[in-house]
Design a binder for these strands. Structure first.
Lengths: 193, 193
DNA sequence: ATTATCTATAGATCTATAGATAATGC
DNA sequence: ATTATCTATAGATCTATAGATAATGC
């Protein structure tokens, strides 16, 4: 029954990884500890050897998801800084992202959950949001006479807000054409030709 | 024990009204039927005389909240069409709205819940979102050479997306200054002087 | 000997229903 | 007589814990 210390650490990581996916897909209350553990290939009771509570797992799952999300953005910056902004916006505002919340933006998938019931996860969201704004700010074009530092930050914040809102709206409706129109309209607005 | 037919209808409305508030505040899974009924001044068992299931109440509560929200926007248009756009945006992007989700924007408060577990409520969201886009489109300034009909619709969609996203982000973090900066930045972006 | 995991279960909570109650409405 | 509401509870589910088990690591 027992596994090696190394394997136990891997099991813990897998629980966090599974939780980061399933909390985004089903919400904090939409998945139970028993089901989470089954998805990680372990039994219910084993959970409490790794975490003090389900709430604790939620905090780690948020940190994990937020870090992965930021890493994805940073990878785009590293591979092609000039095209990073359109690359981030294009890949965010897609039907693929809309239909796969489990691997997508934590703010769009869990922001409301975190706001209403998970005070412990809010510091992680605060830090990640700050970093996302800073990253976007650095990618915005210098701009014309209006391109002050303050204006660029304002634009970075508005860009991310429009992305998150577009995703929340696109997911909440059941008309495929309107849903795509939302994603495409915000894409066109944020990336004028 | 029994009340008049008229009073029963009022009781039903009160249940929907309470649910529209509490589902936005606590989420669909965050409040139970017993607590909802207690908040409406009734007992648990009486619920099923009015609704077939909790899910059915969710659908009615969404319709109710969405209608109230649209009515608020239309009242602003009726009272002063010229100032309606800034009035809507200004009142949306406030700390007051952020801190009182129970009476606020249904998309920002329940959009994620509806997306993941309430297919029955999605038609209402679809219709309301369509109407909100149309209303905003009519309020946008004619604009310069770029003010085509298509461009105005794109801008209406982007405006609402930015508002919803700003609210979701502002609620998910625990830094008051950053939270206000998000609301103010999106406000400034949407309403340039 | 230690400990990661498992089985089993306690205790709480949640949706929904059954049957009783008492006031309304014909 | 009808029916809106109430009391009580069935049945399911969920978090967390207790104690057993067996492989690891000193």
């Amino acid at each position: 029954m027992k596994v090696s210390r190394e394997q136990a650490a891997l099991n813990r990581e897998r629980i966090v990884d599974v939780a980061a996916r399933l909390f985004r897909e089903k919400g904090y209350d939409g998945i139970g500890v028993a089901d989470l553990m089954k998805n990680a290939g372990l039994t219910h009771g084993g959970f409490y050897g790794h975490f003090a509570s389900k709430e604790d797992l939620m905090i780690e799952a948020c940190q994990h998801a937020l870090n992965k999300s930021l890493e994805g953005w940073r990878a785009k910056v590293a591979s092609d800084p000039q095209r990073a902004l359109p690359a981030i916006i294009d890949s965010y505002l897609t039907a693929r992202h809309r239909d796969q919340p489990g691997g997508g933006c934590p703010a769009a998938a869990m922001g409301t959950d975190v706001a209403r019931m998970s005070p412990g996860a809010r510091p992680a969201f605060t830090q990640a949001t700050r970093q996302q704004f800073a990253l976007l700010e650095g990618l915005l074009p210098e701009g014309g006479p209006d391109g002050t530092q303050e204006r660029r930050r304002q634009q970075a914040i508005s860009t991310f807000a429009a992305m998150v809102g577009a995703m929340v709206l696109a997911r909440s409706i059941d008309d495929e054409a309107l849903s795509m129109e939302i994603l495409d309209a915000v894409k066109a607005q944020l990336l004028p030709e």
